[in-house]
Design a protein around this nucleic acid. Structure first.
Length: 478
RNA sequence: GGUGGGUUGGCCGAGAGGCGAGGCAACGGACUGCAAAUCCGUGUACACGGGUUCAAAUCCCGUACCCACCUCCA
């Protein structure tokens, strides 16, 4: 069985055939770092992180490029509004994004190029387009350079739209465009309105890159003129990816072989716009569930399915994940650490190969957990080891292995010491309770258990004696 | 106007002609001093109306409602 992926360009699920055997080049449009990362932004990152991990697990040597667009109108506007330099905003948001992605165990890309660091490459590409007759200088002396949509007959091929059917762009400022649908490759510096730091020298005068062109330039630089997979959110299909495709192909590059797009995550049926407040921002969500639970929630739905976000669904996903985690804990108590050579079960592999069917993949994990729980009860250690290793291996593919060092946080490093301190305190009480139970003094035993519970610690009796764990729940102090 | 997607049980969420994915919740049973955890069992869901077929949630036609994109939103 080979990997099959849904390609937006052909609108079907096709076998993945890499340009070069055993290698995969992926370019994912990251963020325009203009605001704090919310769960929508992060979904895209998780989805493509899973793609990358699956390709890696399948034996591919993956080069994964995720860009950062660190200059655009909104960044400039935000800097202006806050009275801060635009580059400070961009950099701060970029660091926040890094923190958010670290918190949900998204692997750092192979490289993360930024638009502002690739002006020469961008200008070279624009130059090629001008030479080939697909781009022109604005006729109003603004210093803009536009892509000439009419000069490229296959424009619209990605989203199957005909130029004549498109709504004419209601750009506030058509400026020097030949056709309203032409888009900016280079934006001339507006001296009166924009800081000098936002302008770079060019043959067309000082200015900055338009949106779209940076991705074409950077994809070519790091992956070559032809590469395997290009990804991003559905909204990027048009105009962003359509324009990238047009630019790169008009410049003579084959560009991406497969186009993958993840669906939206919305709240209250609405896009996660910045006006919704901060409850959907990652740091806020992480006060409610752990990063690994948030990631599980995102992997739980197929990447092409629209997700209507709710805290209820998030909590439910967290409970579902704890079933798996609880199995890991108990199994490891029973047989200790297992080598990292677990089998991916056939259902799991088939699900992942089928356009990254993570919901079915998770179902496969749950089935192995059920099997493992039976082995645990039966005391079948050999079989249990197999189930445990298998569950860990499958979780690892999804970036959900709790032992993954990626989950280690500053707080976690003190967890061990805290845990042994609590253990020492609770041990005495549990000893007392054991004595009471031995004397069948149930009232006394329950009283001790209640006292421990009042401290937020749950006691469970197992064949190997009592075990304590922290109660789950919202840490809202109530 | 153009392009694309959706509507599945109490809830989340897969599937895409024929055996009820999986999880959460609920209920019953086993286990337990009681619990917890775990295991076993319990559900006849696919927006609506037609049609094709031996067989339709899945294909076709129609209807309703919802959503996304159409030039700087993941």
């Amino acid at each position: 069985m080979t990997l099959r992926l849904h390609d937006t360009a052909t609108r079907d699920v096709r076998d993945f055939v890499p340009l070069e055997a055993g290698k995969a080049g992926i370019y994912v449009c990251g963020l325009t770092v203009q605001s704090e990362p919310h769960i929508g932004h992060v979904r895209s990152a998780v989805n493509f992180d899973v793609l990358r991990r699956w390709l890696t697990a399948s034996g591919y040597d993956v080069t994964f490029i995720r860009n950062v667009t660190d200059i655009d109108d909104k960044i400039l506007a935000r800097g202006e509004a806050q009275g801060r330099p635009w580059f400070e905003i961009a950099y701060r948001m970029r660091r926040e994004l890094d923190r958010a992605l670290d918190a949900i165990n998204v692997l750092p890309p192979t490289y993360e190029p930024a638009a502002t660091g690739h002006v020469p490459e961008i200008l070279e590409l624009i130059g090629q387009l001008v030479t080939r007759g697909h781009a022109y200088r604005a006729e109003d002396g603004s210093g803009d350079v536009y892509f000439d949509v009419r000069s490229w007959p296959s424009y619209g091929e990605l989203t199957r739209q005909r130029v004549d059917d498109m709504e004419p762009a209601e750009d506030a400022d058509p400026r020097g465009k030949r056709d309203p649908r032409d888009f900016a490759l280079w934006k001339g510096w507006k001296k009166a309105l924009e800081p000098e730091t936002a302008a770079w020298p060019s043959p067309y005068g000082p200015g900055r890159p338009g949106w779209h062109i940076e991705c074409s330039a950077m994809a070519a630089k790091y992956l070559g003129p032809a590469f395997d997979i290009h990804g991003g959110g559905v909204d990027l299909r048009f105009p962003h990816h359509e324009n990238e495709m047009a630019q790169s192909r008009a410049a003579g590059q084959p560009f991406a072989s497969y186009w993958l797009h993840n669906a939206w995550i919305t709240t209250a049926g609405e896009k996660m716009s910045k006006s919704l407040g901060n409850s959907m921002l990652i740091p806020s969500v992480l006060t409610r569930v752990r990063g690994i639970e948030l990631r599980y929630y995102m992997v739980f739905a197929h990447y092409r399915s629209h997700v209507e976000f709710s805290f209820e669904a998030l909590d439910e996903a967290a409970r579902s994940f704890r079933r798996i985690e609880s199995f890991l804990d108990r199994a490891e108590d029973a047989v200790g650490e297992v080598p990292r050579d677990g089998m991916l079960c056939a259902d799991f592999v088939a699900a992942m190969d089928d356009d990254l069917g993570t919901p079915a993949a998770i179902a496969a994990i749950h089935e192995v957990v059920t099997e493992g729980n039976k082995h645990l009860t039966a005391g079948n250690r050999t079989a249990l080891r197999g189930s445990l290793a298998s569950v860990l291996a499958m979780l690892d593919v999804l970036g959900l292995d709790p032992h993954d060092p990626g989950w280690e946080t500053v707080a976690a490093s003190s967890d061990g010491r805290l845990s042994s301190a609590v253990d020492a305190l609770v041990a005495g009480l549990l000893e007392e309770r054991s004595v009471a139970r031995a004397e069948k003094d149930w009232a006394r035993a329950d009283e001790i258990r209640d006292r421990i519970a009042a401290a937020g610690i749950i006691v469970e009796d197992t064949p190997d004696g009592p075990k304590w764990s922290l109660a789950e729940g919202k840490e809202d102090g109530s």
